[in-house]
């Protein structure tokens, strides 16, 4: 289908493309091991987050949490903020995004273009300051509504009802599904659906391992596991460092012509690990993985060119996924 009543109706239904050059070579006569990329950058605002944004807003409307003209408050500069801004515009809501003032210029421009209002928290205060600013804003505006993607079941449901069925339809022989672990919505929703339908399917998480600066600020007792996370849905979980994520992101565009963000490189890294294990074991494998977004928003990091050391340095201290 290629005709839709509105942009919101065009959410999902993304292409699944084979990666013949990145798929490992198998010995003659051995069963095939193939990699498949689900191009989520083909969604209306260019990321997989359009699916949960649309489902969370619809669910909030149906449950009476959101009313026409309401203000949505979203503390993020990422893809969810951009997706929610688009949905809010088309459904008639005002959206306010809270973010530290040191986020990249393209993020701010994108959000403003989609109609979001932005409240900056001072960069110098880091995450503590952002939290304090967010608290203050919420206290001043108790009527503003937040959707809280980390604990909102409609986030996972978006993938249970759309991403999962699309994958099964396009690749009935699927043996592995690999996606990034952030809010955990993609893996929980898609994973649950596929586990119900496909015997023996493996659900694999690729988790970004950032530079030291990011963890330096974290205290173990103040850690966080999203409310949506259910470890029983996963079979394996890989931690992918910045260097491997950048290397794979570059291979995606150099070898297969897919220009993606760094989280997709991390996902490919885990997908290749399971694909190579299948080759070693002489098992057939159809490994589907997610391209979460395109590379456009990350060009200003400079991490697409130069040496891997340069790229690693450029991304040090950044939440690149």
């Amino acid at each position: 289908m290629a005709r839709y009543e509105s942009l919101l109706d065009a959410c999902g239904g993304t292409p699944l493309v084979g990666l013949p050059r990145l798929s490992p070579t198998v010995p003659e006569g051995a069963p095939a091991v193939r990699l498949w990329a689900k191009l989520e950058d083909r969604n209306p605002t260019g990321s997989i987050k359009d699916r949960p944004a649309l489902f969370m807003v619809r669910e909030a409307e149906e449950s009476g949490h959101l009313h026409p003209g309401d203000t949505i408050l979203e503390p993020t500069s990422g893809n969810t903020g951009i997706a929610l801004a688009m949905v809010a515009k088309l459904r008639g809501y005002r959206i306010v995004c809270v973010m530290p003032e040191n986020v990249s210029a393209e993020r701010v421009q994108l959000l403003r273009m989609y109609g979001a209002e932005i409240i900056f928290s001072p960069a110098a205060g880091g995450s503590n300051q952002a939290v304090a600013t967010a608290k203050q804003i919420a206290a001043e505006h108790p009527d503003w509504k937040m959707l809280f993607q980390y604990g909102n079941p409609a986030n996972a449901r978006a993938h249970y009802e759309t991403t999962g069925p699309e994958l099964l339809h396009d690749l009935p022989t699927i043996t592995h599904f690999v996606a990034g672990l952030g809010t955990t919505g993609t893996l929980m929703g898609t994973g649950r659906f596929l586990k119900e339908k496909v015997d023996g399917i493996q659900i694999i998480a690729a988790e970004p391992r950032y530079g030291e600066l990011v963890y330096g600020l974290r205290n173990i007792d103040e850690g966080y596991v999203p409310e949506l996370y259910d470890a029983t849905v996963l079979d394996r979980r890989f931690s992918v460092g910045t260097r491997d994520a950048v290397l794979r992101t570059r291979q995606l565009v150099e070898v297969e012509g897919i220009f993606a963000g760094f989280s997709s490189g991390a996902i490919l890294h885990a997908a290749l690990a399971v694909a190579h294990e299948a080759v070693k074991a002489g098992r057939r494998a159809d490994v589907a993985f997610v391209i979460a977004d395109g590379g456009w928003k990350y060009l200003s990091t400079g991490a697409y060119g130069g040496t891997l050391n340069d790229a690693e340095e450029a991304l040090e201290g950044q939440l690149w996924a």
């Binding site: 530290p100 391992r209 939440l319």
Partner: peptide
Amino acid sequence: VTILPAVAGGALGFAAAAAIL
């Protein structure tokens, strides 16, 4: 072996959201 504290993707957004809630 690598030991890491659990950090959610987009951790800053989470921290701010959690604070509001």
